[in-house]
Structures are given as structure tokens and as C-alpha cells.
Design a protein around this nucleic acid. Sequence first.
DNA 1: CTGTATCCGAATAGATACTG
DNA 2: CAGTATCTATTCGGATACAG
Lengths: 127, 127
Amino acid sequence: MVTKQFKGSLKDEADLTRADSLAREIFSDVANKWALLIIEAVGERTLRFTELRNEIEGISHKMLTQNLRMLERNGLVERRVHPTVPPRVEYTLTEPGRALRATVDAMCDWTHRYLGHIETARHRFDS
Amino acid sequence: MVTKQFKGSLKDEADLTRADSLAREIFSDVANKWALLIIEAVGERTLRFTELRNEIEGISHKMLTQNLRMLERNGLVERRVHPTVPPRVEYTLTEPGRALRATVDAMCDWTHRYLGHIETARHRFDS
DNA sequence: CTGTATCCGAATAGATACTG
DNA sequence: CAGTATCTATTCGGATACAG
């Protein structure tokens, strides 16, 4: 699996298995549409909840909070609460978050580069 | 959204909207756990259905076929059927598939690089 | 404004049985 | 071996209502 190349750096099989399942867990958290779109949307900026909601076409209130919570838990976004009324909450990418964003950028570029390719592949397949 | 930077290259708003929704569609197809794990598992190799199933920890028969069909439809994997009995079906990444794999590799690297980071972030959050 | 909770339908995913 | 089909349980996701 994904962690094969790291075998050498670990003490024993138990550690490997643990690291492996943790890696898979993180991968599962992160490798989902909404999480990646949020990472991409925040980018270098500092955005409020509602701004984020407006940036990401089609995301629901629920999915946004749910995924923001998850990303915060994994330390990929920082959540800063201003104790005002009405409340003002701002989200920023952390260093790990920005590093992940680089790979998401690459994925978005890929999508656009192969848009035509994929569209024709689909037509061929659907007949 | 994701395609903002491509505005200049398109003829009109209609094209933009269409390209945008197609991009989002492709992104949604691809930005999911099983699809990315399959891409990663195939890599530079040519693998049979069962080999793939064994490579990818925890994937079910159903999810594998379903996602392979989707990847084939989008032209990311090539499916070669040998008309023998029992049948032998082999999967390989196409050029677009290999290009995507590069970004998945980056994402796997990211996972491992920040494993510790994330683990401690989780502990902090969960208390 | 941001967030939690709940209800409910839709989509996802596993298990199993069956076919060429 | 590879794939389809079906049944079922779980999860996902949207809508809504409500609280700080």
C-alpha cells in the first residue's frame, strides 16, 4: 500500500500497521470532494463562514460545517472566533493545509488540461 | 471557482458555465477515496481485476468494478479483455490517468509527511 | 452570523447469489 | 475469473428549526 516506501524508517510491524491505518484514515478524510473544494477555496485567504459558503458552488450549510470541523480537527485549517455579536469566525489554511492545497491545485490543473480528452472518452464509452 | 483562470480562453459565458460544470463533474468523479486508491494501485503496472482487489486493502468487489467502470468511461484506465476461459481482464493507466496519478502521488507523500502533525492536531482537538 | 440538532429521502457500500 | 444483479444497512446530504 501507500506506506511501503516508509518501511525502513519504522521500528516494527506493529508501528507499520498503525501508521498505515492512520495514513488511510487521513487519506479517506481528505480525499473527498467537499474537503478538497474547501481547501481550494480558502487558498491564501482568510474567509468567513458565509464567504466560504458563497465561494463554493452548491455546498450546503451542513456539509460546510461538517467538513470545516473535520479539517480543523486534522489541523489543516485554523478557526479564529471573534467574540462579537453577531459572531465573526474566520478560516485560514495552516501550513499542512497549504501544503495539501498545492496538490489540490495540481489536481485542478489536471482537470482542466484533460477536460476535452475526458469529454470525448465519455462519448466514445457511452455508445 | 476552479476555472476562473481560464476565462480568457473561452468564447462566452455559456461555454464557461458548461466547462465549469463539466470540470466539477470530473472533479467529483475523481476526488473520491476509492478512485484515487485505484489510480495509485495500478501505477505503472498492468493488473488483473483480482490482483487489484488484493492490492487495495478493504475495497469490495462492487466498489472496484463500479469505480473501474467510471475510470474507464473517463478514459483514465484502459481495460483489455483476453477472450479466454476463464476470462482475463487487465487494467492499465492511460496517459491522462498517469498524469492524474502524479498528483495522487503528491497527495500520498503529503499524507506521510504530515502524519505526526495531524495525529497531534487530532489529540489537541479531541480534548 | 455561525453553529447544532433533527428529520427524512437519496446515495453508498457490503454481502450474497448467480452467469458466461 | 470477471462481472452483474439484488437485497439490506449505513452513511450522506439537503431542508428546516432553533440557539448563542
